[in-house]
């Protein structure tokens, strides 16, 4: 029964992955025979300042979005877990950007942040001079991070909301009877209860954050001055330059980093539980 699925998965996922792993040790344009170069592609990357910048930018993006996104998602989930008027509407409204194509969201944010966009116009109302957010190397990446957080925190909100709805009310009641105020109930009951949810959110979120591409492609194309060049964007550039060997090496370095981070997160979660 599962044979067709295994065959399709093997053919379309595992075989190409194995192939590109082999290519990562070769010089290969896609035509002719790959030329074996050992670890040269990996060594070149480790000494490549552009790759260093792409890695730093990606790390900045991941740290920023994962510091703010889940916190915002949790705060929204707590607010929307209470009985309030229009609760269903707000839940749907916050989740809506998640269902919207990332490219469309990026295009809209690009319009908002442009020189004559709504953001600068709004600042102008308060007498504040606008800024070329996406054309300034200091603000381009944070701007992309903000757009990404806005697009993605609805997902984290839904996950936290689902977890909060599974929180047994008697736990909170018992804490209240013991004299715990709202903060202590949150710190000593809610947060420990949500620990597995945090692990899930961070594992999924970090994998997504390290693979950021669409927003960069639409909003800045890696510029200005490579300030928004990310690892996956650099990978595509190498692919376009027909350097499939180095592109494969970048992909496997990314896989290694993500696997390491995911392993660390799961280990930490086990330790804390």
């Amino acid at each position: 029964m599962i044979a067709p699925a295994v065959i399709i998965l093997g053919l379309l996922t595992f075989w190409p992955m194995a192939l590109s792993f082999v290519w990562s040790f070769t010089k290969y344009t896609g035509l002719g025979d790959p030329q074996w170069v050992g670890f040269q592609n990996y060594l070149d990357l480790l000494g490549d300042p552009l790759f260093h910048q792409a890695a730093l930018n990606t790390a900045f993006f991941a740290v920023t979005t994962m510091a703010v996104g889940p916190a915002l998602g949790l705060a929204t989930a707590i607010l929307l877990n209470r009985k309030m008027r229009g609760r269903a509407f707000y839940r749907a409204a916050f989740f809506l950007p998640v269902t919207t194509a990332l490219v469309a969201v990026a295009a809209v944010w690009k319009l908002l942040l442009n020189d004559g966009g709504i953001v600068n116009q709004a600042l102008g109302l308060f007498g504040i001079t606008g800024h070329q957010w996406l054309a300034d190397p200091n603000t381009a990446l944070p701007a992309i991070a903000i757009a990404s957080i806005w697009q993605g925190f609805g997902f984290e909100m839904v996950v936290f909301l689902a977890a909060l709805q599974g929180l047994p009310p008697d736990l909170l009641e018992a804490a209240s009877i013991d004299g715990a105020g709202p903060f202590r109930r949150f710190w000593h009951v809610v947060l420990p209860y949500l620990r597995p949810t945090f692990v899930f959110v961070y594992v999924i979120g970090l994998i997504g954050a390290f693979q950021v591409f669409d927003q960069v492609y639409v909003m800045t194309q890696g510029g200005p001055i490579n300030s928004t060049l990310t690892v996956v964007y650099y990978l595509i550039n190498r692919f376009r330059a027909l350097d499939l060997g180095q592109a494969s090496a970048i992909a496997y370095l990314l896989v290694a980093v993500l696997a390491g981070l995911s392993y660390l997160q799961v280990r930490l979660a086990r330790k804390w539980s």
């Binding site: 379309l12 190409p16 590109s20 492609y217 595509i236 692919f239 992909a251």
Partner: peptide, 19 residues
Amino acid sequence: MKIMKKHGVAAVAAAMLTA
């Protein structure tokens, strides 16, 4: 591009097979 985002170069190879 979406495929590329998810699986990097593996997807390139997948795309080549699909092609």
